[in-house]
């Protein structure tokens, strides 16, 4: 079975929603069990008392990345068929900066806030409501952003191409950097005063 299964037609499209639900359950479980339903645990990454976000995020990224590269190499999956989010330089950076501010204020990102909602965190519910309002506002004032939203389209650009590295070298460096960060995080955690939450 060569993946990706649905685009290849191995699994009919009608199974889409069922698969979405199952994947979502796995996603939600992994997030909640790692502690992403607590905004104060998430914020620990930024103040140095708990680096759980950093650990989970980078472990997940390198796990999935390695899986994709190995499956592609073995011919079990056609990585060129995977969807690559187009890279619009200015809107990606501006959007990221705005999201960072929202992160620092709200203590959640959309996925984690839904986990918080699931276990009854009222602040997560308010955050999710804010998401709806924010997206509604953006859509209404879209003409103001339209130029920035559509400028600097580099298409489905790959980071290693932009840096002039080969895929393997970049992936290897990413793993090494991630391991370095994990050890640094443990070191910082020991120095920083524990916060009770």
């Amino acid at each position: 079975m060569t993946g990706p299964l649905i685009p290849m037609g191995v699994i009919p499209e009608t199974w889409n929603n069922v698969i979405a639900l199952i994947i979502g359950i796995g996603f939600g479980f992994a997030l909640e069990a790692s502690g992403f339903s607590s905004s104060r645990k998430i914020m620990g990454t930024f103040f140095g008392y708990d680096f759980v976000v950093l650990r989970v995020f980078f472990t997940a990224a390198i796990t999935a990345m390695s899986g994709i590269i190995y499956f592609d190499f073995m011919g079990w999956m056609d990585a060129s068929m995977l969807y690559i989010n187009p890279y619009y330089v200015s809107s990606a950076i501006t959007g990221g900066l705005v999201m960072g501010a929202g992160f620092a204020l709200g203590g959640f990102c959309p996925g984690t806030s839904f986990c918080g909602v699931a276990i009854g965190k009222i602040d997560a519910m308010i955050f999710s409501a804010g998401l709806f309002v924010g997206i509604f506002i953006f859509s209404e004032i879209y003409p103001l952003f339209e130029k920035m939203y559509n400028s600097g389209n580099l298409g489905g650009a790959m980071i290693y191409d932009m840096l002039g590295l080969s895929k393997g070298v970049f992936a290897f460096l990413l793993i090494i950097v991630a391991i370095g960060m994990f050890y640094a995080a443990t070191f910082v955690e020991k120095k920083v005063k524990k916060v009770d939450y």
Binding site: S66, Y70, D72, A79, S80, G168, A171, I176, I179, F182
Partner: peptide, 23 residues
């Protein structure tokens, strides 16, 4: 964690030495 680190590095080395897949 040392074993996990070694595992991750080995996976990374594997990626490093494998030829790039052509599509």
């Amino acid at each position: 964690y040392i074993f996990l680190t070694i595992l991750a590095v080995v996976i990374g080395l594997g990626i490093l030495i494998m030829p790039e897949t052509k599509h």
